[in-house]
């Protein structure tokens, strides 16, 4: 009985034809993106429905692949998948999409979803060994923190090859005989990539921002003559701008100008921009010195905190570094915010 099953498997391995291949693949995918793909990507970048932008795991075909064609492994985050297929024009290739819970390659690798076990499981479940006769699979380089190539090799027949970091280099990688140049192996973090991340990061702490704005708005009515609702609009303008500006400079300006500020800790980069914004804002307002100082502290605190948040989106911060930075930065951010709040209240009574 066991022998029979083995024979069957062996036969299957070597008798695949074009019709036989069709049943494995979910769909042939296009290498050009249409309006709905682009609109979907835009929505994700704006933080809309980005936790549910998935495609079904399984095998997809690009062009007319056969049993000799290469197999690329991808995450099931639609944004990653779209970037991949867009760069495969003219190739005949298989894509094995594994279930990373809709998370991109690098993050899923870090969390273990784009990991050794998941790759092995997908190879087996999708009968990859009967789909292709060769034993190469090309993994994205950034999956290496989750996938141990030698373990995949040990538990399947397949020999994983780590491809380039960027999907746009895959064609050259294959043409070079599965070799990546040092440049293809390196992750960069240019202005354009940083800018794409800003909207989602901007909205990330929106509730904290609104709460802080609400508190300072209500406190703006305080004064020696009692609480003045009528003056609330004019007296709250300076603190509202200070808070929003600090938040904005922390995430938008710090992020865009990331390499141009010499301090290495992100919290310090943010603090610099918070201070600069506060100095600029004060050129346009005449408020008492205590209110100037108090709102300066708040701007610096917020800007520093938001810039430090961006460590999670950056491509070069180590955990040890962030730990070291947050140990002093967090008390300083909380302290500045608290001190700013107290001084702001006092400033209303002098």
């Amino acid at each position: 009985m066991i022998e029979n099953i083995n024979m069957e498997n062996i036969n299957k391995d070597y008798t695949i034809d074009q019709e036989g291949l069709a049943k494995f693949a979910k769909a042939t995918v296009s290498t050009s993106l249409n309006f709905s793909d682009l609109f979907g990507a835009l929505k994700v970048r704006l933080g809309i429905n980005r936790d549910n932008y998935k495609i079904e795991p399984g095998i997809y075909r690009v062009g007319n692949p056969n049993s000799e064609s290469d197999v690329l492994v991808s995450a099931n985050y639609k944004l990653s998948f779209d970037v991949l297929r867009k760069n495969l024009e003219g190739l005949n290739i298989w894509i094995l999409v594994i279930d990373t819970k809709g998370v991109n390659v690098w993050c899923a690798a870090g969390k273990g979803n784009f990991g050794t076990n998941n790759v092995i499981k997908s190879i087996v479940e999708n009968s990859l060994s009967t789909l292709v006769t060769h034993r190469r699979i090309i993994l994205p380089q950034l999956s290496a923190s989750g996938v141990a190539a030698h373990k995949v090799r040990k538990f399947t027949d397949f020999k994983p090859i780590f491809g380039p970091v960027q999907a746009r280099d895959i064609k050259s990688f294959i043409e070079l005989g599965y070799k990546a140049t040092p440049k293809m192996r390196k992750i960069e973090f240019p202005m354009k990539e940083r800018a794409k991340l800003i909207p989602v990061d901007f909205l990330y702490e929106k509730y904290k921002l609104l709460i802080i704005m609400a508190v300072f708005f209500l406190l703006s009515g305080l004064g020696r003559e009692g609480y003045m609702v009528s003056k609330l609009i004019s007296t709250s303008l300076f603190p509202m701008l200070s808070i929003f500006g600090g938040y904005f400079f922390g995430i938008v300006i710090s992020t865009l100008m990331l390499p141009y500020i010499p301090f290495r800790p992100f919290a310090l980069k943010g603090a610099f921009w918070g201070l600069l914004f506060s100095v600029i804002l004060n050129q346009f307002f005449e408020v008492n010195y205590l209110e100037t100082i108090s709102m300066g502290l708040v701007s610096i605190s917020l800007s520093s905190f938001m810039a430090a948040n961006f460590t999670g989106s950056s491509t070069y911060t180590s955990q040890s570094g962030v730990m070291k930075e947050m140990k002093w930065a967090l008390p300083f951010q909380i302290g500045f915010m608290f001190l700013g709040l107290v001084l702001f209240i006092i400033s209303k009574f002098i």
Binding site: G110, F266, N309, G312, Q319, G321, V322, M323, M326
Partner: peptide, 12 residues
């Protein structure tokens, strides 16, 4: 290497 998320939110 002690690997992990280099992310302030994660550390908090």
């Amino acid at each position: 290497v002690k690997s992990g998320v280099g992310c302030a939110v994660g550390i908090i």
